Simulated assay, not measured.
Amino acid sequence: MTPSPEPAANGALRVAAIGDLHVGEDHTHPYRDLFAQISSEADVLALCGDLTNFGKTKEAENLAEDLMACTIPVVGVLGNHDYECGQPDEVAKILHQAGMQVLDGEAYEIGGVGFAGAKGFIGGFGRHMLSPFGEGPIKDFVQASVDENLKLESSLRMLRTERTVVVLHYSPVIETVMGEPPEIFAFLGSARLGETIDRFDGVKAVFHGHAHRGSVQGRTARGVPVYNVARPLLARTTEREYTIVEI
């Protein structure tokens, strides 16, 4: 866990969050101005996955150039699109070199607030959550979900801060995927993530993306606020393309 800078004078931290940027190879500085604006309004930027369209090196480099406009710390996770070309480690390396702290089971502390995160995975919610029963491929599928959940648990265990923010790509609750076709709910997140979050005290907010047609806000069973910050959703339903929450 990396040490934090000095906390703000009033102890509060303004966290801006956005996901699903989907930067392409032919994009030229698509988010430079937005990142500069966010830097003037927030203390930390959290990026919630699907940062590139296909996980290509050029796409990551285009985003990395825009991240240079950030004058505040940046934390984030990768999403399923960032894995498409089979080189997520290279994407993460490029973004890390541009100043982003990539959370994949790691933890990071900024201004007295802990940031825990992982990509997460699919699996479903409630009585419809897939269980490891039957054919081998189903068991492998569920194990992939469990493995991502263990990364999140590991990152949360690293923190000793009184306030924690969780950064994901997939949703931990069904409320923020409402609005999507019910047939794909299971492919938008997993209740396992929410159950893990609720085992840890001090979690003040959870940010995720992925559900472009979902809902903006929900809560875990213990009442932790969950924010869907997928850019296509926020651009369509709110006044700006990102969310700011004071922690």
Rank of each mutant, 00 (worst) to 15 (best):
M1C: 05
P3I: 10
P5D: 11
A9K: 11
A12V: 08
A12I: 06
R14K: 15
V15S: 00
A17K: 08
D20H: 06
H22P: 07
H22R: 10
E25W: 04
E25T: 15
R32W: 09
D33S: 15
L34K: 08
L34E: 13
L34F: 12
Q37Y: 05
S39K: 09
E41H: 06
V44D: 01
V44L: 15
L45I: 15
L45F: 07
A46C: 04
G49F: 13
G49Q: 08
L51M: 12
L51I: 09
A60Q: 07
N62R: 15
A64I: 09
E65H: 11
L67H: 01
L67F: 13
M68Q: 15
M68W: 11
M68N: 13
V74R: 02
V75E: 07
V75M: 06
L78T: 02
N80T: 14
H81C: 14
D82T: 12
D82S: 09
E84L: 14
E84H: 14
C85V: 03
Q87D: 08
P88R: 04
E90M: 12
E90P: 00
V91I: 15
A92M: 13
K93Y: 11
L95R: 04
A98P: 08
G99V: 12
V102F: 15
L103I: 11
E106L: 07
A107V: 02
Y108H: 15
E109M: 00
E109C: 05
G111D: 03
G111L: 01
G111Y: 09
G112H: 08
F115K: 02
F115Y: 13
K119P: 00
G120Y: 10
F125K: 01
G126E: 04
H128C: 06
S131P: 00
S131H: 09
P132R: 03
F133A: 12
G134L: 03
E135M: 11
D140A: 14
V142M: 05
A144T: 04
D147Q: 14
E148S: 03
K151H: 06
K151P: 11
S154P: 00
S154R: 14
S154G: 10
R157K: 15
R157I: 02
M158K: 10
E162Y: 05
R163Y: 04
T164H: 05
T164E: 08
V165T: 04
V166S: 08
Y170A: 04
V173E: 01
V173C: 04
I174K: 15
E175Q: 15
V177Y: 13
M178Q: 15
E180N: 07
E180L: 09
P181W: 13
E183F: 11
E183H: 10
E183V: 14
F185P: 01
A186E: 05
L188Y: 04
S190A: 09
A191F: 01
R192Y: 10
L193E: 08
T196M: 12
R199N: 12
D201S: 12
G202F: 00
A205R: 00
G209Q: 05
H210C: 02
H210E: 08
H210L: 01
H212T: 13
R213K: 14
R213M: 12
G214T: 03
G214R: 03
G214Y: 00
T220F: 06
G223Y: 05
V224Q: 01
P225Q: 06
V226K: 03
N228L: 12
A230V: 10
A230H: 11
P232L: 09
L234Q: 10
Y242C: 06
T243C: 14
I244W: 04
I247Y: 09
